[in-house]
Simulated scan of single mutants.
Amino acid sequence: MSRIAKRFADLQREGRKAFVSYVMAGDPDYDRSLAVLTGLPEAGVDVIELGLPFTDPMADGETIQLAGQRALASGQTLERTLEMVRDFRTRDEATPIVLMGYYNPIYSRGVARFLHEAKTAGIDGLIIVDLPPEEDEELCLPALEAGIDFIRLATPTTDDKRLPRVLENTSGFVYYVSITGITGAAAASAADVGPEVARIKASTDLPVVVGFGIRTPEVAREIAGVADGCVVGSAIVAEIGQGKPPEDVLAFVRSLAEGAHNA
């Protein structure tokens, strides 16, 4: 059983919802980023999404774009991101890590080489936002063969005709994007999200977690209450962007996690 599957099975047995956090690797620099990363499990994070910085993050809003720029300026690369995961794994063998980003850096490294290095480093899943299901042979199918989950995004515009194609090779969990547009663009609404989550769950046995537009413990609790969990990214990245020390960032993360776990 993969780390992701085990974590969701454990949460289901405990009757708890998942709290998933996103941070950008290398933001604002390697050491502070690693300090936040290694503190996330103790702060209540069940699954970590680790952003891979890229020069053209088309799905991301200003907050995460700036985080990527800070990371790149500090010298963060794909190699250093894998190194960060290896560092994390010396401390934590249980918490799932999902690498989230864009295909270009992976393509440049070579898919076979990347997948071997990612698996060896301790990456459990991938979210690659610019590879649609029609391109599954590029990375999705090789990743699954390598034992790495490939997590797909479903959105408010994923209709009943499109949904089966989106779910076809998805594993780990389904990430439902609660709003149309880029990250950090609007607030999520449980009233809008609930029916969409139910529609997706009618077509898959995978957990469905909801991200985009969640900024407070109250909203985390509301959204987790209608899904299998919630994802917070931009709100956490904004705390880092304000120059707050890792302990303050992790205190904020803890408040969000408590909100989701109290759903």
Results as ranks from 00 to 15, higher is better:
Gly68Asp: 00
Ile127Asp: 08
Lys201Tyr: 07
Ala191Trp: 06
Val85Lys: 02
Glu137His: 14
Thr183Ile: 06
Gly229His: 08
Gly44Ser: 03
Gln65Phe: 00
Glu168Gln: 14
Arg13Asn: 13
Leu115Trp: 08
Thr38Cys: 03
Val85Glu: 02
Gly125Asn: 12
Val47Ala: 00
Leu99Gly: 06
Arg113Lys: 14
Met84Ile: 01
Gly147Trp: 13
Pro57Gln: 15
Ala18Val: 04
Arg152Met: 14
Ala73Thr: 07
Asp205Val: 09
Ser108Gly: 10
Gly241Asn: 13
Gly225Cys: 09
Ala260Trp: 02
Gly229Gln: 06
Ala186Arg: 14
Ala73Ile: 03
Ala235Glu: 10
Ala67Gln: 04
Asp205Cys: 04
Ala187His: 14
Ile127Trp: 01
Leu206Ala: 06
Ile123Tyr: 00
Asp159Phe: 11
Gly225Leu: 09
Ala121Gln: 05
Ala185Val: 10
Val45Trp: 00
Val129His: 05
Ala257Leu: 12
Leu256Asp: 08
Pro57Ser: 12
Gly184Val: 10
Leu206Thr: 04
Ile240Pro: 04
Ile151Leu: 14
Pro53Glu: 15
Val111Ser: 10
Asp46His: 01
Leu66Met: 14
Val208Pro: 09
Ala186Phe: 11
Gly122Cys: 10
Ala67Arg: 01
Gly243Phe: 10
Arg162Ala: 14
Gly51Cys: 05
Ser74Ile: 07
Ala187Trp: 05
Val210Ser: 09
Val209Ala: 08
Ala67Pro: 01
Thr216Glu: 09
Ser234Thr: 15
Ile123Arg: 00
Ile4Pro: 01
Glu14Ser: 15
Gly243Leu: 09
Gly147Pro: 14
Gly110Met: 13
Asp149Thr: 01
Val237His: 00
Tyr176Arg: 05
Ile151Gln: 04
Gly225Thr: 03
Leu141Asp: 05
Gly194Thr: 13
Leu66Phe: 10
Glu62Tyr: 00
Glu138Ile: 13
Ala186Val: 13
Ala190Leu: 05
Arg32Glu: 12
Val226Met: 02
Gly110Leu: 14
Tyr102Gly: 11
Gly110Gln: 14
Arg80Cys: 03
Pro164Glu: 07
Gly26Ser: 08
Leu115Cys: 03
Gly39Ile: 00
Asp29Gln: 08
Ala224Glu: 08
Gly172Arg: 03
Thr204Arg: 12
Pro96Glu: 04
Phe8His: 07
Asp205Gln: 11
Glu247Trp: 02
Val237Asp: 00
Ala188Pro: 06
Ala121Cys: 06
Leu256Asn: 06
Glu145Thr: 15
Arg13Tyr: 03
Leu66Trp: 11
Val129Lys: 05
Glu222Phe: 05
Tyr175Glu: 14
Ala198Asn: 04
Arg199Phe: 11
Glu138Trp: 07
